[in-house]
Amino acid sequence: MAVPVGVPERQAPGPTTAAAGGRVEGRSLPQMAWRRLRRDRAAMAGLGVVSALVLIAIFAPVLTWLNGYSPTQFNPGAIDPALGGVPKGPLGGIGAEHWLGVEPKSGRDIFSRLVYGARVSLLISVGATGVAVVLGTVFGIVAGYVGGWADAVIGRTMDVLLSFPSLIFMIALVAMLPNANRPLLLIVVIGFFGWSYVGRIVRGQTISLAQREFVEAARALGASTRYIVFRELLPNLAGPILVVATLTIPTYIAVEAALSFLGVGVKPPTPSWGQMLSDAVDWYQVIPSYFVLPGLCLFITVLSFNLLGDGLRDAIEPRGDGS
């Protein structure tokens, strides 16, 4: 079987050498990363969809005003009570009046619910990612930089968290805790069970950074720990942390949807994609569009974040073979 010889393929010359013939211009690392990212069409498509989603989430009230139906408004006129509440018209009632059809039984407008669902999804996933990133960064740096007993304690804690059957635990916790503010509770619980992934990466990076000459030089010059952490370590950790964060958001979107799907996510009538899918289970034989639409929303959102995250990783931590 003919197999290409494993000579590492070189990518097109990077931006650092792009100034061939001319003067070599100085560029900062973020600038270089951005240039690399801009060439990655898949990542830019991901960025485009993510930006659109953020706009949709922010302007959800405007969009539903255009549509004319609030996400929680019952529309008995759009369903057929004689047939058990099936939406009137083909494809789950898709048409000029209800752009993506209506829910069976309640007649709530699916477009409006999806738009508000984007809000819930992004709010909880980004919030939980924030919690995980802050905890993971703090504990990762402490473990990696201080070492010794701090590393041992934090390391063991991360081991325990990673061995936790966290989904069972999250469901149980959310189901049993008083649910005054479900979204906040979800953010805290998801973030708390997730920080160890970020922590492990930050710890590893910190250990390797702390041994580098520039950190040693700063220490030799008498820099305080505070200076080293905030001026030497954190700026260098920013790239990897950004990559992890971008790739954490889609997993948390899926976790939130899974929890809502299992009935312990955001409470009705607040719409969530996972909850819509769960409602659609009873109807999937009759009205496939009812489960396909929220499913597609989830899929496209998660895929876009994954594309963006993959692209960011390649742009920030480029490897010679372009893999």
Binding site: P250, A254, A258, F261, G274, L277, G295, L298, F299, V302
Partner: peptide, 8 residues
């Protein structure tokens, strides 16, 4: 594949 939730 990695972007598709299992219940979907």
């Amino acid at each position: 594949g990695v972007s598709l939730p299992v219940y979907f």
